[in-house]
Nucleic acid binder design. Sequence first.
DNA 1: CGCTAATCTAGAACAAGTTTCAGACTTGAT
DNA 2: ATCAAGTCTGAAACTTGTTCTAGATTAGCG
Lengths: 206, 206
Amino acid sequence: MPAEASTSRPASPPLTERQEARRRRILHASAQLASRGGFDAVQMREVAESSQVALGTLYRYFPSKVHLLVATMQDQLEHMHGTLRKKPPAGDTAAGRVAETLMRAFRALQREPHLADAMVRALTFADRSVSPEVDQVSRQTTAIILDAMGQADPTPEQLSAVRVIEHTWHSALITWLSGRASIAQVKIDIETVCRLIDLTEPPARP
Amino acid sequence: MPAEASTSRPASPPLTERQEARRRRILHASAQLASRGGFDAVQMREVAESSQVALGTLYRYFPSKVHLLVATMQDQLEHMHGTLRKKPPAGDTAAGRVAETLMRAFRALQREPHLADAMVRALTFADRSVSPEVDQVSRQTTAIILDAMGQADPTPEQLSAVRVIEHTWHSALITWLSGRASIAQVKIDIETVCRLIDLTEPPARP
DNA sequence: CGCTAATCTAGAACAAGTTTCAGACTTGAT
DNA sequence: ATCAAGTCTGAAACTTGTTCTAGATTAGCG
């Protein structure tokens, strides 16, 4: 299976092999630079140099630094979704499974806090011109959460709960990244918001 | 009453009158520029010129654009808290009152969407160097929500719920500002997250 | 192969946030 | 009133994201 079903890029013009390689080099350089220094360390000139591409080319592939970092996030999210899929959470309740999944993702981000910083800051700083890409990240996140719920066909209420969980996830991440909340606090917030799932699930319909 | 109790600035060195006036001119110019064009329209050189202050002086008062905009937000929040206090929400349940309060604040922001954009983007983009100021904004927001709950002495559980509500508030605002969610959707998300309050309040202790 | 359009490169140029500096002005204490 | 310390000004310089240009290279096609 081409592993491309739900997450494929618009793919407007299909890229040649060398182009695909360039794109990959750029994303790799971006993630690498982000892993040291975070958002500020991802300097477009450096990304271009590291990935052996002219500055103009970099901008042809990613029309701004924020686009680049959001694309980097899409890339990492795909990895993570794959990883999470392999070992699904084991909790009894949907809320528990979602909380566990998010905490697992959170621990993964802790391992590369600078990378997390760069990606999340870009995501929330993105303006309208990046909406499609940000939306894609959001869909991917939703998919991860629904997977954890084991809920293939959610009600509108459940979708609201999922959206609120995503809001909390992003914002809690930011407060942690900027040193205003501890890991323990993030954990509590996630567990708290996940209770919303229990609120909407139980009517376990006949 | 000096209206300065819970929200006073650190006030490290007390400012002279002229300095206070400068500070005020700067904040006014910042809000004004933000009200057209949003974040990008707040250009430090323009702020300096509009407020009749040298660029270096502007940077002495606010060490970065983000600091300036976060301070602008503190300023606006104080206004808003005052306004909201005058007409407290009338709902029966704490959840309802909080939701109503937040929607009221939201409608106020809708009237100056560009200003909202500038402030919220600055807030979530802020790095560690702005933590104290961002924290202050967060405390002010918490105060507004607790006011609406009519809960002078909240439990830790309730504080978690309030934090999650704040997360949702900020993040929902962002998705609205970047055109990825409708006003209706923001309303639903806020109402959804406010249900967490009912979850923690009912044990209405004897 | 030879052509054409698209793409890529190197590098200059521009924009806006931030820093720096020399000199003028204020303030507070004597 | 005067002096020292601290503050403000105006202007230039520096940094990094972004745009532009002219000339190579590459890809697809007859």
